[in-house]
Design a binder for these strands. Structure first.
Length: 625
RNA sequence: GCCCCGGUAGCCUAGCCUGGUGGGGCGGCGGACUUGUAAUCCGCAGGCCGCGGGUUCAAAUCCCGCCCGGGGCUCCA
């Protein structure tokens, strides 16, 4: 049975002519009908339904009831509609089934009308047009199969079956439910999240509280949800992360480019690509034209590559852009703090590879690169879980290659295998962070794309001068920058739960050293010390407020400042400083030069930006009370 | 879109169930204190209790509608 459900302001019909030789007998008042605020249920009974009409009735009623409760109406219009199927059942069985559905629904207390069977009817209908207003269902005997009115791509995705395994570094491939997760609790959480995806939590994620309290990031009611506001400290952290990932990729050999953030809906190559995905774009109207805001850097880079003349000698060719921003209009209820946004910053590198062999070599290198990039922001393999996804064919031909990936990470990984390729890629990995609410979020990812070079017309010339389609690798070695911030903060929240002091990686700490004079009298010495630190490119400030020392210490601690210097009579006389170190909670009396050396050593190799706020704490506004 | 929770001063929060002129803390401002490693004391200012409607002699409180935020569902390039 096929059902089309339309939530409507009203549905009215009028009987015209007979459509069958022997239509249903009807009375005069059945020739016209109307219901307002109604769920219109158009139905076609199919041949297979004859195998088990009772079951079909039961399932159909259940489906209808479910939709009725979702759209919150009590009015149902059962409407025989042959055009939904090309394999109709016989009219008498069909009529019987429809009548039974009608009666069942009436018995359950709904206000039901049914249009007569076997006539040509004129009808008017006013669809409400909200997302649930138009649904379709297919019901078959035996096993109820659901089908929603969704883009072709999503339908295919639904049919796509995933086989889940755990692969150990020893090369053992174990079905997920047979794997012994003891010692791998985090992997278990991740696997569970990936496979079941159902969660019952009603908490604010800990990183949200931190980002607000620390005045890093805030919601912006003046924008669309999922578009955030960054205060100076948050902007500094984000900016340093952006620079860090960019530098890493350039060092790796990528060419940095910049491409537009909006694209023409009508562009042929883009159109095809876009059609694979449900409508999640921001749309910008300009005159008569419609543009969508990019949801990744693929478009811009592919369009550059399409026009470039590329020789096999240039391969692998790596191109990179940091998208500030990529836009995805995620559903309202899906947005969450820094974890999932509608506007986010995505480092996105695309590599043109000659053939599968070169693509795989690059894949492995970028896998290692991703590990290194995450390590730099304080995330080690202990902090994330690996998922590797591929087609069955790829696995059969490249087992050793995959096993080697698990050896590199040194722990079991989650495997998702597909019988056939549906996505544009044949192989993909992600590093996923599992947070305090047991939710997983993908950070690093690399994919081998076998489809888009054709779609975009990207070619290279091989040794014989032949024009060939290359493979493309998509790589984000860190994942979205906002999500890296999320992972850093969630990791600290985990530590706090265990009673440990939270800390930023030293190079990311917005203020690295706070200097506190014991009283006004020593402000000059405090400024002198801060000046020395700043001269060495260390972000230092001075708490010159007229407050108690204890209070200033407390506030510096609450800001997670790694080094707190207190100076007074002793220090000034001896030309030293007293440092309170966050990492061990101890105090040391040392020379400022030694502190500089220590901090420089800890931040070596990472980007630097100057202090994001005025040097004197007394000169700073409160951004959020 | 649907479901749940919330919206009280710049921030956090009590009061709402059981209607009777909104209370505290932080922050801000003024003053005293001149500080040695996680919150000094005193005072002052600051509110269309999200918006609109209804019930009532009387609404932050009860009812209806809307807006905004958070979480969940579905989904996720």
């Amino acid at each position: 049975m096929r059902i089309l459900l339309i939530h409507s302001d009203y549905l009215e019909y009028e009987v015209k002519d007979k459509a069958l030789k022997k239509p249903e007998e009807i009375s005069e008042n059945q020739k016209k009908g109307r219901l307002d605020e109604v769920l219109a249920v158009f139905m076609s009974v199919e041949k297979v339904d004859e195998q088990n009409p009772e079951e079909i009735v039961e399932k159909a009623v259940k489906e209808i009831e479910e939709v009725v409760s979702q759209v919150k109406t009590n009015n149902i219009f059962v409407y025989p509609f042959a055009h939904l199927s090309s394999e109709l059942g016989s009219p008498d069985v069909a009529l019987r089934i429809l009548k039974e559905i009608e009666n069942e629904l009436k018995n359950k207390g709904y206000n039901v009308r049914r249009a007569p069977f076997g006539y040509y009817k004129a009808f008017k209908l006013s669809c409400k047009g909200h997302p649930l207003a138009e649904l379709s269902r297919t019901i078959v005997p035996g096993e109820a199969k659901k089908e929603e009115e969704v883009p072709e791509a999503l339908k295919k995705e639904e049919e796509l079956v995933s086989y889940w395994y755990i692969l150990t570094p020893e090369g053992e491939l174990v079905e997920v439910d047979k794997f012994d997760f003891s010692g791998y609790e985090n992997l278990k959480k991740f696997a569970n999240y990936e496979i079941n995806k159902s969660r019952v939590v009603t908490e604010e994620p800990p990183h949200v509280k931190i980002m607000l309290e620390q005045e890093l990031v805030d919601y912006e009611e003046g924008s669309d949800p999922g578009n955030l506001r960054y205060y100076p400290k948050g902007r500094l952290i984000k900016s340093l992360l952006e620079n860090y990932v960019t530098e890493k990729l350039i060092e790796y050999g990528a060419m940095e480019v910049e491409t537009p953030i909006m694209y023409d809906f009508e562009h042929p190559a883009l159109e095809k690509y876009l059609n694979r995905f449900p409508a999640r774009q921001y749309v910008v109207k300009s005159g008569d034209k419609r543009f969508f805001l990019r949801f990744a850097a693929c478009f811009g880079q592919f369009l550059i590559k399409k026009d470039a003349t590329i020789s096999y000698r240039h391969l692998p060719l790596r191109m990179y852009e940091l998208t500030r921003y990529s836009f995805r209009r995620e559903k309202r209820g899906e947005l969450s703090g820094l974890r999932r946004l509608r506007a986010f910053t995505m480092p996105d590198m695309h590599t043109v590879a000659k053939n599968l062999q070169q693509a795989m070599e690059e894949f492995k290198k970028q896998y290692k690169l991703s590990m290194e990039v995450l390590k730099g922001v304080g995330l080690t393999p202990k902090d994330y879980e690996v998922a590797i996804r591929f087609t069955e064919d790829f696995w059969n031909e490249n087992k050793d290659f995959i096993v080697d990936l698990t050896r590199i990470i040194g722990k079991p990984v989650l495997i998702e295998m597909w019988k056939q390729r549906f996505f544009y890629f044949i192989l993909k990995f992600e590093f996923n962070f599992v947070d305090n609410l047991d939710k997983a979020a993908a950070l690093s990812t690399v994919q081998i794309d076998v489809e888009n070079s054709q779609r975009f017309g990207i070619t290279y010339y091989d040794e014989e001068g032949q024009e060939k389609y290359p493979l493309l690798l998509h790589c984000s070695p860190s994942g979205a920058i906002e999500r890296v911030m999320y992972a850093i903060l969630e990791k600290q929240a985990k530590l706090m739960k265990k009673g440990k002091k939270p800390m930023y990686p030293p190079w990311l700490s917005p203020i690295q050293v706070r200097v506190i004079p014991v009283s006004e009298k020593y402000l000059d010495y405090a400024l002198y010390i801060a000046g020395k630190l700043e001269g060495a490119k260390i972000r230092a400030d001075v708490d010159d407020r007229n407050e108690r020392l204890n209070k200033k210490i407390r506030e510096a601690e609450k800001e997670w400042i790694p080094y707190i210097i207190v100076v007074g009579e002793n220090e000034k006389r001896m030309g030293v400083i007293t440092v309170r170190k966050r990492e061990d909670n101890k105090q040391y009396e040392i020379h400022v030069e030694d502190l500089i050396k220590e901090i420089k050593q800890k931040t070596e190799g990472f980007p630097y930006k100057p202090r994001p706020l005025p040097p004197l704490v007394s000169m700073r506004p409160k951004f959020r009370g």
